[in-house]
Computed example of a mutant assay.
Amino acid sequence: MEKDFSISYPKTADELCQQSKPLEIYMFIDPLCPECWALEPIMKKLQIEYGKYFSLKHVLSGRLSSLNCSSKKNLANLADFWEKTAFKTGMSCDGSLWLDNPIVSPHLPSIALKAAELQGRKYGMRFLRKLQEVLFLEKQNISSFEVLKTCADTTGLDVIEFVTDIHSDIAAKAFQCDLKITREMEVTEVPTLVFFNENIEEEGIKVTGYYPYEVYVQIIEEMLQVQPQKSDPPPIETFLACFQFVASKELSVVYNKSIYEIEKEMKKLQLRQLVEQIPAKHGMFWKYIG
């Protein structure tokens, strides 16, 4: 990790934040990567507590686009990796997908995501989350056009425009642009986060892989060179209304509570008919219906 912080900053983090967001994080992902999915709780917490100090840009790495889906051994290895990731991180993913309904066009979900982003960044983020949900939890083949169209529809996209954009040169070129950034920043694995400050001449700090939350906070603190003010999370009902469908693990990380404590609270909300319990292969999810 390269670190050389010569830039002058205001005296307090709040002053810094009032000028502009002083940090930018490039998050290199692949929709098929279970560790990218497993980072969801940590990234939600980071954005809630320190989001006023950084902007986040997702970049598609294409690292899984060359999957050999015809090899039974490779598919078995992928299934095993998904299961191990679920046990390690607490974010459920069902590895049997690779044995029952393997992805046949690994690059297509990435192009579809770039097509979704053409309708706005927020729509792109919602579409990515939906892709991950139907892939890791429902074992749906997200290289299917029908599955992609359903995801687009449920996230509020203009489906006709979305289908047109998938087949356009614009989405393909946008994906190629992400691949170029991946090469230029020498990113070879996903997930990878690269942290930059306002001094464009300085190298970023690259963090490859899945790390505890405190590692990312430490990097933000070091790059700001001031003590940032942590924001408190919103009430759980507000969080649920915002994200609509979340794991007990996500709530546990964001609210610093055990899974037992979170699920006890969620069952109270369930009795009030504000949430619906959605069991997954590993752990529990909650759908907001209030």
Rank of each mutant, 00 (worst) to 15 (best):
Q140N: 14
V59M: 04
E189A: 13
K114L: 09
K52N: 05
Y260E: 14
S143W: 06
A172L: 14
T164Y: 07
I278M: 14
Q218S: 15
L271E: 13
S252H: 03
F239I: 13
P279H: 12
S258Y: 00
I142D: 06
T155V: 15
P191D: 02
V253G: 07
E35V: 13
I103W: 01
K11C: 07
A76C: 07
V253S: 06
M91T: 11
I111H: 01
E133K: 13
V217A: 03
F162N: 02
G62V: 12
K11Y: 07
V104P: 09
N199G: 11
S55D: 10
Q140D: 12
Y216V: 03
M1R: 08
K149I: 12
D30C: 05
K122L: 03
R121G: 03
I289H: 01
L135M: 15
I259H: 07
A280R: 15
F243S: 07
Y216L: 03
A247N: 01
K73T: 15
Q18T: 15
V59H: 03
K88H: 05
L67Q: 09
N74W: 04
G120D: 04
L118E: 00
P109W: 09
Q19W: 04
G283H: 11
D158I: 14
T188R: 06
E202K: 13
N256K: 12
